[in-house]
Design a protein around this nucleic acid. Sequence first.
DNA 1: CCAAAAGTGTTTATAGTACACCCATGC
DNA 2: GCATGGGTGTACTATAAACACTTTTGG
Lengths: 233, 233
Amino acid sequence: MSEPIFQYRHPHPAVTVDCIIFGFDGLQIKVLLVQRKSEPFAQHWALPGAFVQTDESLDACATRVLQKECSISGVYVEQLYTFGLPERDPRERVISVAYMGFVKTTDFQLIAGNNELQADWQALDQLPVLAFDHHAMIQKALERLRGKIRYQPIGFELLDVKFTIPQLQQLYEAILGKNLDRRNFRKKILSTGLLKQLDEKQQNVAHKAAYFFAFDQQQYQQLMQEGIYLELL
Amino acid sequence: MSEPIFQYRHPHPAVTVDCIIFGFDGLQIKVLLVQRKSEPFAQHWALPGAFVQTDESLDACATRVLQKECSISGVYVEQLYTFGLPERDPRERVISVAYMGFVKTTDFQLIAGNNELQADWQALDQLPVLAFDHHAMIQKALERLRGKIRYQPIGFELLDVKFTIPQLQQLYEAILGKNLDRRNFRKKILSTGLLKQLDEKQQNVAHKAAYFFAFDQQQYQQLMQEGIYLELL
DNA sequence: CCAAAAGTGTTTATAGTACACCCATGC
DNA sequence: GCATGGGTGTACTATAAACACTTTTGG
């Protein structure tokens, strides 16, 4: 079987989708990376990504990439930015549409796809050298995340179904890169009405056990429908 | 001279850049449109846009489009969103990177390019039927504009070098779609320190003449360097 | 009983909101 | 002198920020 050839009357760039998926392990923010099997940048770590297929929307491509390369599915992702400098890929002109998303690292068992050596979570403050302009992509995603977390309950997507308020605060501090006042944080976050307290407490901790809370999805939907702009910090 | 052919081993989409340029005429927000000369959507109004060239960055493409199709130059534009539904162009798969920008309508004399019948400003609330998914692009740009105007001094780019505070307020009201209190608006906008009052007043108005103000570019640069997050509303 | 983190309330400062009267100008 | 829009200040309310002690738990 000979390779098919696609012809156009004008030069066409290739278009890829790359995904910046953030995860939180209770202490640090991590980002999902895959180790490349093939050139260019073989052996290098990179964001999961793939060429957009002809009949596939950009959103669908992002979903497919995560499924194929990391075995992750059912994740909400949103478009971040499109990177299109002419020299960003050594092979040919490649324009990349970056998507970002948030998950609980514990929800998925990462399985690398056929074109990847491995897939893993890596801490933001000790990233390896990355392929292409993927470092810039992560930077852009972080900026967006820091802006977003102030008015959208992203935090909840990164934490377990049940979590304590100090855990939530730790997440916010990790994202914002600064410490917050415990009392004010609790007051503010509870005032949104988006958290419901569970009867359950932490166990086996060498200090007073914290209550678990859960994110009230229903309440969130309702607030969004009413068009309320909620400030979280 | 026969047409050149470009060949690839995988299907490649075409990539375009479309520009949503907002202008303000003192009363309404307008958007810059061109009337298409050729198919598809010949005669229809559309956003200025063009195919990305091989050695051209996306930003550069946006600049080129505005120059060629409308004779506008020296405008700051920023990337908005990338539209990539498979069916958005009847010819072939076309992915479009949308850019947005803000200008004073009076700063430019619009001259349509060779592939456009005309270029003109059109009011947002009475747009014609537009080519492709350009209506959705304008909607997205408006949402972004409404968010942006709350913390970035976009208003100043849309107004003349000198403007009165009531004019500025009218602009904000046009963008946000609601009325603001005159006294509070003045207080808030002056408290940023970004406006310097000029000695000059309005002339030939049948009421008390308003003072002109100018945007203090230097002050703005300084505030941005200090990383101050300024709320404008 | 000690270390470590959870939980809780009050005070102060700052920012937002609502609101009414006088002023300058052209006709 | 009248209609039109420009300019100004104050009181009230709500939100943000600062801050210290008591409680629970495991070791």
